[in-house]
Structure formats: structure tokens, C-alpha cells
Design a protein around this nucleic acid. Structure first.
Lengths: 334, 334
DNA sequence: CTGAAAGCGCTTACAG
DNA sequence: CTGAAAGCGCTTACAG
């Protein structure tokens, strides 16, 4: 069964499709359509359940009311929670979200940008990775609103919203040092993205500022795409072979692997072994003892992202780029 | 800057847009376009970075290569993991996913169906809720492929993939009874959806089959949309006021609230208090002691959903509906 | 107060 | 071996 078109409605109402279009788009008053006609047409639309074809509308107007969201992995709770918040807020303003996960692959990220481009999305919200600079530049040159979140690409001049990773990491290490810890390890990933680098920089800086020598043997860089069993064995090695009294995990999934190791080797978290995990996770509050974490302000990030992008969308001209850095919160649990 | 159209390519190559279209769509051979022309056009396309406008293509062909995914809440890890798997598999076959969360609201679910309809998605993957029967029937009457997963609507005649909730719940209770438990509680939600009802039925049936009297005071139905603090106080009341030696949580987020209660009231899981949680969660493996769970086979569910929907999509005619019920797995941890 | 017509960027049946 | 033209369902400048 074919669905109704504007023409069907026009025929039924005995008016032109122009008139129907004006009424659908709320321009009836402005175009001074008579009350009688408006009522008649609206009645027919309501009765028939007619919905305008958005595809045709998009082709004609050039915008789709869709915002493309490109993230690393929707099954990571940080991203799925942000996605939910963004979707929610966008929805209320009449925008839909179409999303896809890059799985940290530059090729896939580029493909996604292309496919969003060919779908004519109105704006792009991207948690970017190195290697897509040229593609993003092209989007910006074509006048598309693009906003980065979570991570930034230093070479690209566009809006960005993210947490203050360097500071959060610095404070975590400072809190270890205040507790008297001396041998502080960092378990991080080998992805070369800004927010991971910043966490590393914060670690290093806090040590140096406190006169503790940086020891590269206490830094474990886990390969991004490897099996968890491999990760676990590397962390186990670090914990068993080095003399460590505190550890900062740079991501929540690394912390989860790390906690599994502690369970396996029966090492207790307590006075002589402290742990902080970057990015909160339900498992951490529940854990005995509770795991201290760096909480990123999800709600604020989502709020700012959508606010900036909607403002850009409703403005005819290119607005100033905005850089919003939101402090992260260190939650101490025990 | 306007992006290139097929016409621009045709002009540059000095051929008609018909020819360019045939080449883009791989029909060059079939339409016996000469090798020389194919090469020339392909070169120009590659150099110019031309991408066909999918909106125009959709309007013309009537399909969008987009599959709509409607779920309860993308930030729930069950759904986000399924979404990731489905997205992945669809992507490999050239389909994109556009998703949205219903937040368990019938109105929002209906709106989403309408908006997907007006966007002309090629197929619908829905984790349905009661109250959208009429809308789904209309989709089916219009010839749209629709598949349900996780939950089913008994009145609707369409394909479905889900876990065997009744059996999983039955086996959980049976395992409690085999351990000698007598006072077994069920903490569930008040959402009236099939898979929640089945978990309840499995609970009841297992008790009856074992000659244990069903006691409604041991069943706590938590209101879906309430604050977690309220949930926690209700569970606390159940645990403190009833004499319970085992509890089955019907969803993972309820189990997480329940574990928080146990931590608060300092009740230990062990020989005289057993716990099973429905739907695994990273927190459960990590918990000390490990929490036994019912694991839904995410990969298999996603695999079947996408297989059935793609088969339907590539077939000209309406295929037989398929009902795939996949056994869930009881994982005992301690 | 209302309508005829062009055009968004494609695909495809038809013609040669 | 290749192209002119219709048409998908809308919006909107223009005309009356």
C-alpha cells in the first residue's frame, strides 16, 4: 500500500498542493489562507493520518533535521550514556540522531563521515580520532556545523566540549601522594588521542611537582584492540613484578580488567594499595571496598554539546567556535 | 560550497547523466557501456570525490538503506551491546542504523514509529511495549519488514527473537531449591511486558513444581520510572522484614540496587543468602563474592535479528515469520 | 486569497 | 553503445 502524498490531500480537499504545503508548514497565516480552507485541510490530514515525506522535504530544502553522532563505541557506557542524553535533548528540539561507532578505526571514521555527508545530516557531533583531520576540514569548509567532544584534535579549528583530563589526572596522583604513596603506576592505552595523552601528562606532572622521579617501568600502555585475557596478563605482570603502592587506571574498562587481576592474585585494596579509576562505572560503587573514581560530568557535557550545536544550526552565519572545558570530579570511596 | 551532483560529473566527462548513473550503480557492463567511457567517468568521480546524494536516491527508489532500531534505553548495557552488534552486522551489508530510546513511553514509541516511517526506513527492529499494537499492524500492512526482539507482543504476527525467559527463571529458582533454599524472593518491575511476565511465571512454576507455596509477600514489584533511592528503600524493607534465604532479581539494574542494599545493611551473600541476577553486568563478575547471573546470548540474538531482517529485505515477497527462542545461560559464580 | 510551475538529484523505461 | 525525459514528493518565488 502506497502512503499518501501531498497531492492526495490536495485532491481530496480540492485545493492546490501549494496551499496544503503552506498549511502543513504553519505558513497559512503568513500566506493568508482563509480559515475555512485551513480547517478543511487540517481535518483531512488528521483523518487520513498523512505524514509528509521527510526525504522529499530534505531533498528540496537541503536539510534533514538529522544530526550525525560519531563515537568510538556505543557499547561503552560513557558513550551510551552521553548518546542517550544527547538524543533526548536533540529530540525535544525536533532533531533526530543517527549514530555509528568507529571502533577506533580511521577508515571506518572516514567512511562514516562520508555516509553522513551523503545523507545530508545537518550537523556532526564527533568524538574524533587522529587521522580524520582532512575529512573534518572539508566538512567545515562546506559550512557544516561540527563539534568535537570528549577529545579534541589540536589542528582543527572547531568547537569542543570535554572534561579537564589533565587536571583530573593530576589531582588523582596528588591525592595518592598526600596519602604517602611513592610508587604510583599508570595503566593506560596506546591510543594516541588527546584526552589519553593529557591523563598521562597529568600523571607525570604531578610526580615531578612533588619531587618524585618518573619511572617508565611503572607505566603500562595497553594495546587498544587486544583480547581482555592479554590485558589481564600484562596488568598481572605489572602488579606482581613491580613494587607498587598505588595505581591510576586511565579508562574504566582497564580498571575493570585490573580489578579482576586483583581478585585473581588476591591482593586487597586498602592502606598499602590504593586505586583510582578514570570514568565512573556502576561496578565501582558496588565493589568492596568502593573504588575511587574520576567522574566526568556527562550531563554537562551533553548539555553543552547540544546547546552549541543547536545555536549554530539556528544561526544563518558561522558563529565563533567555543571551547568548553569542564572540571572532572574526583570521588573518593572506601 | 555546494557539493557535486551527477550532472557536474556528466558535464565534466562529456556524457549523459544516464551513463554516469549506470556506472555508479555497477550497471555499466549490463548496459554495455564501453570500457573507455567507464574508465574516464570513474577517474573523474575518484578525482572529484563525488558521492551520490542518498536523499535523492531514496526519494527515487523508495528505499533508504536505513534500518530503524527502537529500544527502551540506549544507556542500558543490554541494549547498547545489542545495538553495537546489530549496527556492526548491518553496516557490513550496507545498511545504516538509526535508533532511538522509548524510555518506556507509549507516546514516544508511537512518535518514533511515525518519524521512522516518514524517513522511509527500510525495516524496523523493535523491542516493543504494550500499546503500540495498532501502529505496528499498520507498518506490517504497508509491507514493511518488522522484527521484535527481547520482548514480544502476543497479538502481533511478526518475527521475533528473544531468550527463553520462562525457562531461565525456572532454572534459577530450581537451583536455589536444589541448594535447600525455602524462602525465595523475586524482585521485579511493574512493567507489563512479556519477558518480565515470563520471568515471574517461571518463578511461580518452579516453586509449585517443587511443592513450595507461592507467597506474594516475597514478590516485590518495583515501579519502572522511580528514583533509585526509592527502589533501594523498598528492597531494604523486603530484606529486613521478611525471612528470606534467596532472591532472584529480574533485571540487572534492580540487582545493582539490591547489592547496594546488601552493602548498606551489611548482609553477606553466602551459604544462608543466595542471589541470582537476570542479565549479566560487568559489576557481577567483579563483585566479591561473584554474583550468579542469567546471561542472555547477546551475540546470538543480534545475529538472528539481523539475519532475518536482511533476508526479508532482499526478498521481493513477504516471507514466513520466524520465532527464534534462544536458551539463556545460568552462570554460577562464587 | 490561491495556484501553476520550476527544481532539489537521482533512476530507469524507452528509444535510437 | 548512449541519451532525453519522466517522475519520486516536496517547497517556494512568482503571478494573478
Amino acid at each position: 500500500m502506497k502512503s499518501l502524498s501531498i497531492k492526495d490531500i490536495a485532491v481530496k480537499a480540492n485545493v492546490s498542493i501549494t496551499t496544503v504545503s503552506f498549511i502543513i508548514n504553519g505558513k497559512a497565516k503568513e500566506k493568508s489562507i482563509s480559515e475555512a480552507v485551513i480547517e478543511k485541510v487540517e481535518k483531512i490530514i488528521a483523518e487520513s493520518g498523512y505524514k509528509p515525506n521527510q526525504i522529499a522535504r530534505s531533498l528540496r530544502t537541503g536539510n534533514s533535521n538529522i544530526i550525525g553522532l560519531i563515537i568510538e563505541d556505543i557499547s561503552n557506557s560513557f558513550f551510551s550514556r552521553i548518546a542517550r542524553l544527547i538524543e533526548d535533548k536533540a529530540y525535544k528540539r525536533g532533531y533526530k540522531i543517527i549514530y555509528s561507532s568507529t571502533e577506533n578505526s580511521v577508515d571506518k571514521a572516514k567512511e562514516l563521515i562520508n555516509m553522513f555527508k551523503s545523507r545530508k545530516v545537518d550537523a556532526y557531533i564527533i568524538s574524533p580520532i587522529k587521522g580524520i583531520e582532512e575529512d573534518v576540514k572539508m566538512l567545515l569548509e562546506d559550512g557544516n556545523p561540527v563539534i568535537f567532544f570528549d577529545r579534541n584534535l589540536p589542528d582543527i579549528n572547531t568547537s569542543y566540549v570535554g572534561a579537564d583530563h589533565l587536571n583530573a589526572s593530576y589531582q588523582s596522583i596528588q591525592s595518592f601522594i598526600d596519602q604517602g604513596k611513592k610508587n604510583i603506576a599508570l595503566v593506560t592505552t596506546d591510543i594516541n588521542v588527546e584526552q589519553i595523552v593529557e591523563r598521562y601528562d597529568g600523571y607525570k606532572k604531578a610526580l615531578e611537582d612533588n619531587g618524585i622521579k618518573y619511572d617508565e617501568n611503572l607505566v603500562l600502555k595497553i594495546h587498544f584492540n587486544q583480547e581482555e585475557s592479554e590485558t589481564i596478563s600484562q596488568i598481572k605482570q605489572l602488579f606482581e613484578q613491580k613494587n607498587i603502592d598505588a595505581v591510576l587506571f586511565a579508562t574504566n574498562y582497564l580498571a575493570i580488567s585490573g580489578l579482576k587481576v586483583l581478585k585473581q592474585i588476591n591482593k586487597k585494596i586498602g592502606d598499602d594499595f590504593a586505586v583510582i579509576a578514570y570514568d565512573d562505572h556502576e561496578a565501582f560503587e558496588l565493589h568492596t571496598p568502593g573504588i575511587s573514581t574520576v567522574q566526568q560530568p556527562l550531563e554537562e557535557i551533553a548539555e553543552n554539546v547540544i546547546k552549541i550545536i543547536l545555536k549554530q544550526l539556528s544561526s544563518k552565519t558561522k558563529l565563533e567556535n567555543q571551547q568548553v572545558i569542564i572540571p572532572a570530579k574526583l570521588i573518593i570511596r572506601d
